[in-house]
Design a protein around this nucleic acid. Sequence first.
DNA 1: GGTATAAACGGACAGCTGTCCGAGAAAAAG
DNA 2: CTTTTTCTCGGACAGCTGTCCGTTTATACC
Lengths: 352, 352
Amino acid sequence: MPPPRKSEAPAFIRSTADFARHVGLARTTVSRVLNGQPGLKQKTIDRVQKALAETGFTPNAHALHLKGKRTSMIGICVEDLATPPALRKLAMLQRVLRARGFSSLIEVCTPGAGRDVVRHFQSLRVEGVVFIGHFLREEIEARIAELNAHGTPHVVVDHFGLRNAHTVALDRAAGMAAVVEHLLDLGHRRFGLLGIGKGPVSRIDRPTGVQAALRGRRLDPATCTVTLDHLHERKNDFDFGRRLAASFVALPDRPTAFLGLNDEIAIGAQRGFQEAGLRVPRDLSVTGFNNQDICQMTSPTLTTVDQGIEATVEAAAELLLAQLGKPLPARPVVRTIVPRLVLGESTGPVRG
Amino acid sequence: MPPPRKSEAPAFIRSTADFARHVGLARTTVSRVLNGQPGLKQKTIDRVQKALAETGFTPNAHALHLKGKRTSMIGICVEDLATPPALRKLAMLQRVLRARGFSSLIEVCTPGAGRDVVRHFQSLRVEGVVFIGHFLREEIEARIAELNAHGTPHVVVDHFGLRNAHTVALDRAAGMAAVVEHLLDLGHRRFGLLGIGKGPVSRIDRPTGVQAALRGRRLDPATCTVTLDHLHERKNDFDFGRRLAASFVALPDRPTAFLGLNDEIAIGAQRGFQEAGLRVPRDLSVTGFNNQDICQMTSPTLTTVDQGIEATVEAAAELLLAQLGKPLPARPVVRTIVPRLVLGESTGPVRG
DNA sequence: GGTATAAACGGACAGCTGTCCGAGAAAAAG
DNA sequence: CTTTTTCTCGGACAGCTGTCCGTTTATACC
């Protein structure tokens, strides 16, 4: 369509100038109304408000920001939008930020794409960036260095052990320790690890918690734990758990309790054992991790660990927003969230 | 901190001017490099590129847009971030849009908040808005009218029957008809409806499909279907299904097949029946809707209906992006997606 | 070393906003 | 009707970008 002449009403109202023409006032007058400045006749104010309600006109946020207004946008990097716990964090973070007046720019960050994503956030002059999930270590560290160079605050959720990164991380060791102690109390002494590596990587990793709980009872982790992860392609899903269970069924001196890396694996394993004719928790116990909705939907319901997502996200938001305006803290802040054991029907005493 | 003097290097590089000072070139020269204009010495180009890589500087996207560059942002209104199917749509939509060079601005749109959300999108001059999920009818219609007034394209996903709204909707009637026909083939003649209302609202609603399938076999929907929804607080979740099942167990002339509104309800019902000592599918059949991951995790696995989320989202993106630039089509476009029956172990022949 | 050419410089402008300010118009007061 | 007060008008500016263009400086050629 041809561009409308200055005198005509434009096809769409895109600027304050357009809007002022539509109302029949000067642009500056309209602007004063919009910004609540004094010295205006009530009648004029009403006229503008009415047109505002009718047309739904909004000043160009980009121009506002150019004038110095805050963007009130937070960039969120998520590793993918398929992992339920990550999604729950995302959803809650969005809510928390929204409540504090920020809008969320969400981008999925596949390996290698982090650079572009963060650049995009920077170009939009977001006020902070949150990383949720696990990323390549070098990549995320490079991103954070870039953010620091621009004075942009950041928080990393659930990726522990990064240098110079403000982090909120779940103490998975504490969660696993609680699970193991619960099972020890029930008399279990041999544990099958499903997707949980044997060697601890950091002080808050799952294997650390398993070992700590066992050592606390003067038990040797090496002899008390068994893993068959190497037998199957590792996928961390339902089917992986089921295949692991099938392998464990035939094992001589089979463990009596099975610790799943997550709920999917645990439920898969539970299913696998049931298909082999074993009963849970009569013949063996199974535990998960994350406390997803599905834990309540299986039979038996699953004993699992609740991440305390709310606490995690609250801490992350607080940590991020505390950096706004202030110069960045010299040393990285690390906050740890302690999860909570959730008892289900899938754990029971060792059959004597 | 005090504002740096013009001559000094600024604390952070925020503008092309800052960046040019940092490199030691004129702002215009840098700008020419950034935009690939000819007539520049290779040495100069390299110098700028190097500094660019080192500092990670990005031109202010807001200023770019002010100069006429597209924002490449799509606003997405989602009813909540808890419903798994809605989340899957969101995740895939994000991916599809990203592949076409758009970034997604995601906002949760609780009843009554739609106005602010859409205003916010408008103020950011998004190029289009997608609504995912179910909203209050008047509210979403008002929002769409506002968008039209500004020439902003839109697409509504999964909210059928709106006037003047471009829509992509799942033909739930076809899905339910497929389910019912499958069960009819297995010999079932009495159907328990779990969370599915009896009266159809639109031609693609679930009850419509149930009735159509029954009438297709000369059966009377009124006598073939039973619902006990009124006995329980309606929540559309696992527990609702379980409570419904408990009520059905005691019912004289109990149906032999149960149709769940969604997978959660179906799995809850399945669990409820199992707790009452009934076996699925030997004693009765159960079906869900949505084909969520959990359907494969229950025992027996659930017969359900796949939404064809990929097709839905592709259609939505296509419909939205087709409107870009062009004047808005006078008549609303409605595209219907036909879902697909997914057989599980929860359905079987009527026990003779 | 002188000149022709290539390249960088730097001022100006538009795009949209909010704010300031002097000038002009409308309303109120006398 | 005149004077005073109260509003509105409209031009200017900054904020950041890309582009244009005339000017100055650096490079290359002879």
